[in-house]
Design a protein around this nucleic acid. Structure first.
Lengths: 151, 151
DNA sequence: TATTGTTATACTCTATAACTATA
DNA sequence: TATAGTTATAGAGTATAACAATA
């Protein structure tokens, strides 16, 4: 080995800034990926995915929503709601109540209500932690700014 | 209609369609999904994915980056860089220059530089349009707030 | 005619393990 | 020992087309 003092800096401990680091679209994608990975990790402790947890929150909010209704509110395709609700059903968290011969309301079972309480505890803590990471001067502007970007 | 003076004050100008609409984490995910879908649509006009376009921007910025370097900067796993660069290579946009017998620098070809110019035009317009959608009072706070969420 | 629920399918992004060769 | 490049594989989210039954 050569004298370390004579070598060029071999390692960058801080990721070098690059031209994308200041682009709103890029930091939006990176921030969402980082935070959703964190949320997914926390929800995994109760065997829930983000998509399942969001659906459960909605189902617990109203007991007259059909699969299509939930999909429209969460921007999830009808076809993709099928395996999602099938997993919640297989876990015994929801059941289907006929509205007419075409539609069914998705409602929570008793185990579903218990799971929802866990989901609410995790998501509330997550939202608090997320906001706490943002410097105070910017904090209150995040949700209004992001809402302006949603469809 | 009733006398407006007898009605409760309609202070809620932003009525939530559902309980998730006000959660920072949820709107972060929705905003990112919406904007990335828009960017993907625009990049598809020049046959580029978002991941390919971001890599191309980085490769055009410096000509001494290895596949691993690019992956670290963009938070893409080493293994996932392989098919990404393979597609850019197959399209004739990049070539590999040996650094040593272990590493290779990824550099743009002449067609790659032309494609990069198209990518830059699309992304700059996209970033402008994104910011324009945000009400002025919130605009300057978005990037600092999001940067605080990235790792 | 439009909508609901469904099946089938495919693409993109992401994640991990493991291997070879080289620093 | 650690890193670079690679292969293989799997999970998760998303998208479209198509179908039967019902509103």
């Amino acid at each position: 080995m050569s004298d370390p003092a004579t070598l060029p800096t071999p390692v960058q401990h801080d990721p070098a800034p690059h031209p994308l680091a200041g682009l709103p679209g890029y930091v939006l994608r990176r921030a969402a990926n980082t935070m959703m990975a964190e949320l997914a990790t926390r929800l995994a402790t109760i065997d829930m995915r983000i998509s399942e947890a969001t659906a459960l929150l909605l189902i617990g909010w109203r007991n007259d929503l059909s699969s299509s209704d939930i999909g429209k509110m969460l921007d999830i395709q009808r076809a993709n709601m099928v395996p999602l609700l099938a997993r919640l059903d297989a876990a015994g968290l929801i059941e289907r109540q006929p509205i007419n011969r075409k539609s069914q309301a998705i409602v929570l079972t008793e185990p579903g209500r218990a799971r929802l309480a866990q989901v609410q505890a995790i998501t509330e803590q997550f939202e608090d932690d997320l906001l706490a990471r943002i410097p105070k001067p910017h904090r209150e502007h995040l949700v209004p700014a992001l809402n302006a970007l949603i469809d």
